[in-house]
């Protein structure tokens, strides 16, 4: 049963990954293209960390990060896999046992999105793939996209929590046995 629900979670996240790449470019207005970017799978990784445990979050983060790195391979491979896995794991480490409320979940997701974009920016900066200053990147795309992520997180809070908790509770029972 546990396997079933984690499969369902993976399926939903794969659908989100496709929506991110294929449908969101059409929904975002032309003037804001490149400034508002969706990170829906990442939001779900954080939900998994909060309500399903850090190991699930780590695996999902690495898996979907790697998927993005492979499908859209441009400069470096493994950046998103590393950052998403890392942030998912540490969020889980800090908060997985607490029953987070809507407000906590949203603030954690907002913070995690900031940290995620910042990490990705500095990795690119370290390899000299981007030359922009951090302040500019922050104002140009990190903060505007943060709002999109928060709105998305708010909309799918209830289904995401249900989905993640169904794979968590049985997992923890097993651990207790």
């Amino acid at each position: 049963m546990n396997g079933m629900s984690i499969n369902r979670l993976i399926g939903v996240m794969f659908l989100l990954f496709i929506i991110e790449g294929a449908i969101m470019p059409w929904i975002i207005p032309v003037d804001l293209a490149g400034r508002i970017v969706p990170h829906f799978t990442f939001v779900f990784v954080i939900y998994a960390a909060l309500y399903s445990g850090r190991h699930h979050a780590l695996l999902l983060g690495i898996g979907f990060g790697m998927l993005q790195d492979v499908v859209f391979f441009g400069h470096l491979m493994g950046v998103h896999a590393f950052v998403m896995g890392l942030i998912g794991y540490f969020t889980g480490l800090l908060l997985e046992r607490k029953r987070s409320t809507l407000l906590t979940a949203l603030s954690v997701i907002g913070l995690a999105c900031l940290v995620n974009d910042t990490f990705v920016y500095f990795i690119y900066k370290a390899f000299r793939i981007t030359n922009e200053s951090y302040a500019w990147a922050l104002l140009d795309h990190i903060l505007p996209s943060l709002f999109l992520q928060l709105v998305f997180a708010l909309i799918c809070y209830v289904p995401a929590r249900k989905l993640c908790e169904s794979s968590w509770s049985r997992g923890s029972e097993k651990e207790e046995e």
């Binding site: 969101m24 441009g74 990705v120």
Partner: peptide
């Protein structure tokens, strides 16, 4: 075009 990457430092397309 099939998809666009959502990484602003790496705007690749498929």
């Amino acid at each position: 075009v099939v998809a666009v990457n959502n990484d602003t430092s790496n705007r690749t397309m498929v």
